[in-house]
Amino acid sequence: MSDFRHSIARRVIVVAITATLLGACVTSRVENIREGNTGILEGEGIVIMAKSYHLGNETEAKFISCVGDSIGRGRTGLRVVPYTEFVDALFPWFEPRTAPAETKGLPTLMSRPGVAEMIKEKGVRYVVWLDGDTDKVAGGGSLSCAAGPGGGGCFGFAWWQNDANYEASVWDLDGLEDAGTVSADVSGTSFLPAIVVPIPLIARTQTKACNALADQLKLFIVSEEIA
């Protein structure tokens, strides 16, 4: 009996180590395309919003919050104006139906009564439009669990792959122009082996995409590199 328990324990440890090594399977690619000068002064801030669902965009609200939190964090964090505060202050000009889809619409927007003054009051220099989402693109395996009076457990192996593709368009409200685009493409595979006890090894694909995009956005906005 003791040998049997040792055997089970050894198998669990082997599976756990193997899955741990495989569980770090996250690949990421971050790019930026600069179209204009950036740079941000003391007191200036940014607002991060999702492109309108009227245009078919499906960016998750928690991803937007994650990017905002990440950009605002730390000593080098930027001032991020909450998007609900910005949208309410500029009602109805940034509603899903009415928000400008291109920078060509910015001069008209800024000429509307009160808009330029409110944007100045909020101290918003850049609007960052997020587009994209995280999808499960592959998966397999099977897992079954059972429980009885003597105990229970799970056996099997499942895996799935998530792809997180996001693009951030940066609009400069000073020059009323498109400053450029930052994109993050992250792919991660998660595993769920189970020998009696399931051992979830989750690739945090969306979180990785959030942090990668936020870091690159911060660099992009702060840098005064000439396009």
């Binding site: 309410d88 202050a89 009602f91 000009w93 509307r112 009564p113 009160g114 409110m118």
Partner: peptide, 8 residues
């Protein structure tokens, strides 16, 4: 409630 609109 809706926010106060920025309109004339």
């Amino acid at each position: 409630s809706i926010p106060e609109p920025l309109i004339a």
